[in-house]
Design a protein around this nucleic acid. Sequence first.
DNA 1: ACAGACGCTGAACGTGCGTATAGCCTCTTA
DNA 2: TAAGAGGCTATACGCACGTTCAGCGTCTGT
Lengths: 212, 212
Amino acid sequence: MCSVADDRDLTAKANIRNAALRLFAERGHDAVTVREIAAAAGVSPGLVVHHFGSKEGLRAAVDAYAAQAFDSLFAMDGQDLASAMTGDNWGSVAEMLVRAFPHGSPLPAYLRRLFLVNDPAGAALFGRWYALTRRLLDSMTEVGAVRQAEDPAVRAAFFLVNDLALVLLRNQVAAAIGVDPLTPEGVARWAQEVTAVYTKGAFVIAPSEEPS
Amino acid sequence: MCSVADDRDLTAKANIRNAALRLFAERGHDAVTVREIAAAAGVSPGLVVHHFGSKEGLRAAVDAYAAQAFDSLFAMDGQDLASAMTGDNWGSVAEMLVRAFPHGSPLPAYLRRLFLVNDPAGAALFGRWYALTRRLLDSMTEVGAVRQAEDPAVRAAFFLVNDLALVLLRNQVAAAIGVDPLTPEGVARWAQEVTAVYTKGAFVIAPSEEPS
DNA sequence: ACAGACGCTGAACGTGCGTATAGCCTCTTA
DNA sequence: TAAGAGGCTATACGCACGTTCAGCGTCTGT
């Protein structure tokens, strides 16, 4: 019964969890061995299973820790919702991540793993964020900050997916445009162009447009 | 010296490669064993290494096969470039994938893995597609089909990344909107809304907009 | 001071992996 | 028909993995 000590994260147990989080994010669960995690945390392999029961238990603990970190973005997003509804800037998941996590944090990469491995935790996270995006867009539509969507479900998915794509393809985007998009400078440059497309559009309407 | 027989893909070697492609796409290279690939192909494990030298050799062969399949999309995109420049519909990577690969093809999932693992092949593919997107947008800008971008490099990355996101988050999007976006029906519904945003925009311009 | 618990280590165990090897069966070629 | 090559299998080997276990030091409560 140690329900008090797990908040104070200065212990070896926390070191193991942090090392595992970083290694899992970098290389994936299967490609990381318990011995590597132990070495990175400066402890023996036996201590890992002593604290977490098994490698799978460690994975669950890391998942829970990351999920808590990501859910803390919800509260922040709740108050961002009001400012976003003014419509004067683009409040995105990527911007939230940049503001919430310091440079070099393994959490964006861990988020990427969650989505790309079809992890149930990732699916649940996507579902919550999708519902949030949908509600946000509905609210903004009522206020008149965004146009009425032809297909609200798809548009909410489109917006969310575009934000997440910046996290998922961070490295490739950085190589393409020369700036890491998950840095303050990078996200600013990204947001400027995205806002332009989202407000003014990009394609010129063709003269032969079908009314349908 | 068997440089003739490797085109005719009815052999056990091709079966092994196809089984490996499917399993690699579904679960990742490391999570799949040579014994599983052999069982899926209906051969013995020894035959895998006999034909491909090692598991890494098999991986390279599968990579080359997939790269060839994806590069074949280039030619198709070359002739799509002309139709896309008319501006009457949204020619995207996702639409190309839907048209090029039958339902249940492992190639979209394999593409997802390529990007997930920071594979050099994935980085190269992204680079080529980015250059293509950039050129396409430049051409369309000259013709007047799209507005002049404030930041052309970022806008090209934004467009490409949005398309790829549909591939990367296919399952999550399917769960959210109720339709697999990589089916003809799904991509049609997706394209309609995306085209609407790309042409008319989504956000209403706020009265207090900073010029700067 | 003593006893129990806890954090932690180092060595060991069993398993499943990728790979090597020896040999079988079936074609082809002369 | 004899001989050789190549597709293919069965078995086994060595290794690295996750996990177990006996035991060490230290800290805490009585």
